[in-house]
Structure formats: structure tokens, C-alpha cells
Simulated scan of single mutants.
Amino acid sequence: MLATIDTARFRAFLAVAECGSFTAAAVALNITQPAVSQHVAKLEREVGATLLERSARRVALTPAGEVLLRHARRLLTGLDDARRELAAVARSDAGGLRVAVFPSAAATFVPAVIARLLAAFPKVNVAMSELDPPAAVPRVLGGDAELAVVYSYPLVSGPPDPRLVCEQIGVDRMAVAVPADSVLAARPEIELADLAVHTWIAPGASACRDALAEACRRAGFAPDVAAETNDYQAMLRMVGAGVGVAVVPRLVASMAPAGSVVLRPLARSRLERVASVAYRAQAALTPAMQLMNTLLAEAAQETAGPLTSAARSPNLHDRQCVQRHAEQTQ
């Protein structure tokens, strides 16, 4: 029955309020602008109030629109939760599953997980988005994704977000990437302090960069960054070309160019990345979601070398889930 409830008018109103125009809302919803206008007009007739003030330059919420906006998001999220809970009760093997995944996981162990999930639930429509935690977490909290595969750096993470449950699936201990012809390549392991005199290829502004900067600060130096990129494959290729050294998650070891880059364990440092599966605390898990969580944990355990499996804790909150995101989602 809930599947037949028409939420299009609320979704159109919400999109216009968030995007600031009917045109942008139409693009976001992948429908025509007249359709957006019709949905909003019908909603205004139903509630008996003008919700939006239209002008040539912008669209603004009326007082009535402000009131409805506060309730519309909760309404849509509640309906989505109800649909999933009913599906779980019915043990449904159909429907949609939207998953946000951080890039290096999307490039390594997640594809096999999705394939195994579809083999078990061939009627489930899986939609994967490649997103880092700052973009993935708001998607989950806003009801636009059921699950997110996220990471955090305990060295710089903030407090947990009670709106989320994060099941830890692995600890990705960092490695040092150096040119194969470097003197450092002969060492069995490398300390951060040994890299103080080298130039670096480092991530751009991100939790990864913050964690690296903090680890280097504790080692007594600031890295001399020659190039910035958040693409680990590009980072490793620059290391292979002799541009500098880098610290990378072991998960990306398979991306290292053979013969030109050597990865060595990072010694005597607390720099590590924790991988987790995140979902909203009040969400009911469908059978497909439950299986996805299980498969992701197994994939972390089965990944040779890069990830050290961690005991799963259903109520463990990944601290990255709130860091720098609370302002975006409240």
C-alpha cells in the first residue's frame, strides 16, 4: 500500500526549496520544469497556502513553506523507512538498494560484493555512487542512500553521531610508497621521520590530508608537498615517476605500477584508516541490506594484505560519520 502513496509533490517542493529554482529542481529530479511547477501548484492547493514566492531571479519560501519544509523531509524519510521495514517483514528479495562507497573501496573489494549480492537477490536494483564520507554521510542521513561504505582516521576523528550506526569492517594500516630505485625501497619498513627530507605527493584538502599532517607533526616535521591529488592511482604514478614519496592505504597496493613503485609498512605511527558500513540508526534493515553488510565484512577479511579484519560491532559508531558533516545535515 505504501508503494502507491504519491510523494512526487513533496519531493518536487523539497527540491525547489533546496535548489533555489524550479529549473535546478527539474535537473535534480530528472523531470521537466513544467512538471515540477505542476507538482508544487497541486501541493499548494492541497495545503491551502502559498509555499513559494516566485520572482524572475529567485524562489523563496513563504512562512507556510518554511513550516512544511521542516516536515516534508521527515515525511519522505519516514515513508522510505516504512517501505524498507515492511519489505524486511515480508522478507522481500526485490526493490532498490542505494549504496555510497568511498573511491578506493569502489575500485577494489566492493564490485565483487555487489556481484555476490545480485547473485543472491537478482531482483534487487543496486545503485552505487562513488563518494567520500563528507558527501556520503549526508546522503544516508537524508534518506538518499540506504548504506555507505565510509572511512575514518582515529588520529583526527571527532565524536560519534548518534543518528548513525557504523559497523566496523576493517582497519587499513598505512604504507609508504617510494620509487623502486630509491634507497628507502631496500628497507623492510619506514618511519615517518625518515621522510622529513623528501618531497611528497599528498592528498588535497580532506580528512586524509588532515590525518597525514597530524601524523607528520607528531613525527616532528611538516611534509614538503610537491603535488596534491586525491586519486591514489595518480599519486602512485607520480611516485613511480620520481616526483616524491607518499603515504597510502594498503588497500590501494594493487594500483601501484609494477616495477616502478615499492610499498613498505609505515612503522611507529598511529596513522591508520578504519573502514565501516554506515546506516541510519532508526532504519530497518531489509534482507538485502543485511546481506550487503555481511558480504562487505567478509570482503574486508578476505582482502589479502591491505585490510586487517576487525571484529564487527553492530552498535559501533564510526567517528568519521560526524566529523565536518553535522553542519550539513542538521
Rank of each mutant, 00 (worst) to 15 (best):
A246I: 02
L117I: 12
L14W: 00
L43Y: 04
G78D: 12
Y153S: 00
P160R: 08
F13A: 04
A119D: 15
L195H: 08
D80P: 02
A120P: 00
P223D: 08
A35C: 02
D194H: 09
A90H: 08
L79A: 11
S37H: 15
V245R: 08
S309I: 04
G242D: 05
T32H: 04
V176G: 06
R264G: 02
A267N: 08
L184E: 07
R218G: 03
A193S: 15
V110T: 12
A205T: 11
A119P: 11
P287A: 09
M128W: 10
S276P: 01
E327H: 14
L155E: 15
V261W: 10
R91A: 15
T7R: 12
V140E: 07
Q323V: 01
R217Q: 15
Q323K: 05
A284V: 00
A227M: 11
A135T: 07
A56S: 15
A100C: 06
D194C: 01
R54C: 07
Y279E: 05
H325E: 02
L263K: 01
D224T: 10
K42N: 15
A211Y: 13
R74V: 05
Q330I: 04
E146K: 02
R73L: 14
V113Q: 03
A304M: 02
N125M: 13
A211C: 07
Y153E: 03
E214H: 01
L68R: 06
V248Q: 10
N293E: 14
F102N: 05
S55M: 04
R268Q: 14
E66G: 08
L75Q: 11
V165K: 14
S129V: 12
A297Y: 03
T4H: 03
R187T: 03
S309H: 11
L76H: 05
F221Q: 11
V248M: 06
R83Y: 00
V247T: 12
M289V: 02
T7I: 00
V126R: 10
